[in-house]
Structures are given as C-alpha cells and as structure tokens.
Design a binder for these strands. Structure first.
Lengths: 266, 266
DNA sequence: TATTATAATTTCACATTATGAAATAACATC
DNA sequence: GATGTTATTTCATAATGTGAAATTATAATA
C-alpha cells in the first residue's frame, strides 16, 4: 500500500507526506497525567525532534488551542480545543452509544460503578463510566489510561486478543502498582488461560488497594474483543461470595452488547 | 513576529512552515456533535482541501488513532486517541483544578448542578460539571460546546470581555434554540449592560425549555474574565424567589476562585 | 550590578517533504 | 452489464518544512 521501509515498521510508522503531522501528534502524545507540563527543550529531547522544529509545530498547535502555555513559565500544556475534540470523539463513539443503556442497567442491578474500556497499546482506555448507588469517584476516570495487567478489563482484553499481542505486552516488565499486582509473566499467562475458560476476569487490589472489579469481553462482528465492560467497587461491598453473581451480571451485559454489535455465537 | 499576510488574518491564521499541521487540525475541527461522521469527498469540500491532500492527512491521523473509520462505509469519525488526549487535557487544566473544590461546595450548597465554562469563539466550552442533590443529566456535558448567547455563562463572559469581541459575535445572526432565546442584538446589548452592573447573568428557558441557570465571571490575574461558573436546574426548583439567593452563592464562589487565580479587586 | 548559564525565539539557505492533477481501482445504483 | 460516484495510488514539481546557527530573553550566581 505504501512504500514503507521494513525498519520503520517497528519504530514509528511513517507514511510519505505526513512527517510534520506525525511529529505534531507525537508532541501531543508526550503529555500525560504523570507529566502534563513540558518545557520546550525537554519536549524536543523526549520526542527526538530538533528544538526549532518542535517550537514551530507547537506554535501551530498553540494557534489552534490544542496546546496552551503557562503564562508565567512559558511551559506547554494540552489546550482546551482537545477537551472539545475529546468530547465530540466520546459522544460520537459508536461503541459507547451502543453500550450505554446496558451499562446503566448493569450499574443499577449491581449497585456499583460500571465501565466500558478498550485496548490502547499497553493500556486500557476508559470510554464510559456509570456510577452505582454509592457514588464514589464520579466520572473522573473517563478518558483515563490504566495499565492492562492490573485491570480486570485489561486482562480480559488480553485473554481474548491475539497471542502475538499478548506476548508483546508480556515482553515488557510489568510494573507493580500495589503489593498484589501480578508482575510475573508466567503467572499472568496462567490467569489469562483461566479467563478464556471462564469468560470473565477479576482484579482484587491489583490496581489500587481495596478496589475489586469484574470484567467480561464485548465481541464484535469480526469475532474480535472490541471492548470490555466491568463492575467495580470497594472490597468491603464486592465480597468473595458476591463475585459469582456479579460476574454473571457482567457477562450477560457483555453478551447483550456483543449481540447488538452483530456478533452471533456458535 | 511572523510575516503574516493581512488577508490571511481574517481567514485561517497561517504561520510559515505549518501548513500541513494547520490543515490536519482543520480536518479534526470539522467533526462536531451535529456532524460526527464525514465521507472523504464531503470533508475535503468542507475544508477546502484537495481530495488527495485530505486523504493523506487523514491517513496520518488514522495511523495515530486520532480518527477512525466506519468499517462498513469507510466514513471517518474522531478516534479514541482524542478521547485519551482530551482526558489528559481536562485533568491537567489549571483552571479546572483550582475551581473544582469550590464547584463541589457550590453544588452542595445549592443542591443543583454547578459548571465551569470558558469562551471558545462563539461558544462556551464546559470544562467541568458537578451534579447536585438531584442528579439529572450526569456529567454528559463536559467537553460540550454551547452557544454563547443562549447560556448564562456565555452572556457573563461576553459582558466582561472586550467590546470588539462582543460586537464580532453580535454581527453574526443569533440562532434561536427555544422560543425564549434572545436573538435581537439590541436586546442582548441591554442585557449585557445589566449583567455588568449586577455581576451575574441568568437564562430562563433560552437554551432548552424549563432549564434555568445563573452564572458569574471568574477573573484572573490580568483582570480578564477567564471563565464563568454557573448553577443550573429545572425551573420548577430554580424559582424566581430563589434566584437572588442562588446568584449570591454563585457570585461568592466565583470571587473565591478569582482570588485563587491571583485576582485582587480594587 | 555584572557575569554566566540556560532556555526560548528568530533567521535563513537548502532539499526534503508535501502537494494536487490525473489515472486507476473499488463500490454502489440503476 | 453499464454508469455514476467515491476512494486510492502514482508521480513530477516546487513549495513547504527543516535544522544549524545567531539572537534574544530569562534565570542563576557571584
């Protein structure tokens, strides 16, 4: 399709005639919750761009409000236009639109927060969240990225994705987030096998202490795990004896969404 | 600062060496709640780009997941990466961080939904929303754009911005959203004068029937209206007799945030 | 207050990269 | 099977994006 050099495939993909745009996007992607503010020099260094080039691209992004600057320090942050674009992206996301009613029902049934998440590299992205009876964190998490190996949704998505992708993720070291986070690749492999068998995944204090979640996969028309939904809450409420019941609810909701996406089992 | 041609200033600003990036952003900005899906031809026509150019830029955006395609029709939509970037932009927004505690208190005090909004062209962008006692719409609105002339926040921001900007907005026809929407420039000018006097704005069914909101301006260190906060709810609860009390709360909260931004009156 | 170091802008010559007309391929629709 | 419509690909051309170097602004130190 495009004359892409072999070597480039593993680095950043590169399509002819799109260097500047690809670089501008790389700049945007450098911003994260962990590092939301960058100085020009640092950002240029981090992205491997020439300082002048980074400056020029950032100026273009700033003019369109995709980035803004700290008026005192001159440091760069993501701008309000991205909040607006993110809102449009979210509200027009077909997966989210289809899933929402089921997610609302699931949150009511379980009384806990229900979420919809998709795979993005080594993270899951929270596409939607519906609070349960006991509103705790609110929808603070929509648009957040969470590590695959420490979330129920991540493990489910991994379990039902290609072996190639699984191994790619297991190749990188698994960061511990709590003392219960699974960081042994072999242990995770065993767990993924069990998830494939049983059709759902559980995390108990692996992402943050005292937080329990149960997830099941959403399968699309092409028989791919397009997303995962979960129910999560404090371990005090989501006790061991309640888990089977919750798991059944989540699985049923996931199947319902899958069916709406055109998936037909068998 | 840059050799920008006079004529270009009123069209799309154009900085040398950033054409491709500016064009890619123009493509992204074409997507909206009203038209979230575009066919290549239509999008190229709407943005005034050559079809090939639009295709190439969109391919770059697609490779980075800023846009995605409808697998059946091939039509373009905004992609999940924008949801992630929007999330980072939102959570790292200084205005939002500073305002949140006050907004939470305001929602508790009033029992109604409280919002934080900023001006973006002819719209206000919802940066944050905290539900009141009676949760209705949930935080569906964060990242949404609403017309300036039909919102309390919009009117407040207009009232406290430059005359130049006000006149620019009044020059364009004001779309009616309900039968109560103010569409007469002269009427709006009088209202803005009253808002400057009293320090707060009200909308009663001008955005949607039965919805009432009260807003006050947040002033920053440079004595500019950087944002507006509001309290809103159904007209059945936000009755005429409650409004003065609500307005006082909103104004006090706005002053508190302004002070935290470094604004010192007098 | 001078001196030095560091980071942010601007300039500019150069060629790599983006451009768009035209051709081709892939779909729908009749 | 023909016809119109939309999506890709090709490719010659030069306009656009590039980055080294110079300049300016800002902070840190003596």
């Amino acid at each position: 399709m495009f004359p892409v050099k072999e070597a480039d495939l593993h680095a950043t993909e590169f399509y002819p005639g799109t260097q500047a745009v690809a670089r501008a996007i790389a700049l945007l992607k450098a911003f994260s919750d962990a590092q939301p503010e960058w100085t020009l020099n640092d950002l240029a260094r981090a992205t491997g761009l020439n300082k002048t080039t980074a400056f020029r691209l950032l100026s273009a992004l700033e003019a369109e409000h995709l980035v803004m600057r700290n008026p005192l320090s001159g440091a760069y942050r993501l701008g309000v236009e991205l909040i607006a674009l993110g809102g449009v992206a979210m509200r027009s996301n077909p997966l989210r639109t289809v899933s929402r009613p089921t997610l609302v029902t699931l949150a009511e049934q379980s009384g806990e927060a229900a979420t919809l998440e998709v795979l993005m590299d080594a993270h899951v992205l929270v596409l939607d969240e519906v609070a349960g009876d006991n509103p705790m964190g609110m929808t603070q998490d929509v648009g957040s990225r969470l590590p695959v190996h420490a979330t129920a949704t991540g493990k489910v998505l991994l379990a039902f994705s290609s072996e190639e992708q699984t191994e790619k993720l297991l190749a990188a070291p698994l960061q511990p987030l709590t003392e219960r986070t699974v960081t042994e690749p072999e242990q995770l492999r065993r767990e993924l096998a069990r998830i494939r068998q049983e059709g759902f995944a559980v995390t108990q204090g692996e992402l943050e202490p005292g937080f329990v979640a149960v997830a099941a996969p959403v399968i699309d028309r092409e028989r791919q795990a397009a997303a995962a939904i979960s129910v999560g809450g404090p371990s005090l409420r989501l006790t061991a004896e309640r888990l089977p019941q919750i798991a059944a609810m989540v699985q049923m909701a996931a199947r319902q969404i899958s069916r709406q996406l055109g998936y037909w089992p068998g």
